[in-house]
Amino acid sequence: MIFQKPSADIALDKSEIEEPKIYETPQADEVDTVVGLSVNVEGDFASEGNIIVKGSVSGSVHTSKHLLVEPGARIMANVDTGSATISGTIKGNLRVKESLELTASAIVLGDIKVKVLKVEAGALLQGKIVMKVPEKEMRLEDNKKSKKKSIGSRAEKGDQ
């Protein structure tokens, strides 16, 4: 129809209105830190974003985001990270808040404290592994221990 009665639908035709583009401001924690192949980092190495290591790092490594250690990379440091994927060598203790993945070429010489662990066949690990026990299991364990104690104390009273 060439001539149409004015209607609310036509007046409010949203297809013609350009929605303003919303630019999300990227913050410093969205910028990846990359340590290149022949680059050597020494000291207290910390970043607010993801860290990708292809070279060597010594000292300490800290990030709340993801750490990626590529094959051939070496870290002679204690590592504290949110999550990690290791394909290189780490000589030091690892503390991972969420998940840790060790690929086939990973070598870890140190203790690991992690929530979720994934290990591929071929990964080399020399150290202690401490994983967080779920709360439900902790309560069951506590109940068992308290029952054992009470049975033990009754048995002692009975003997007396």
Partner: peptide, 9 residues
């Protein structure tokens, strides 16, 4: 003032 970066060449 926390870490330093060097290279071979």
């Amino acid at each position: 003032e926390r870490f330093k970066v060097t290279s071979k060449d």
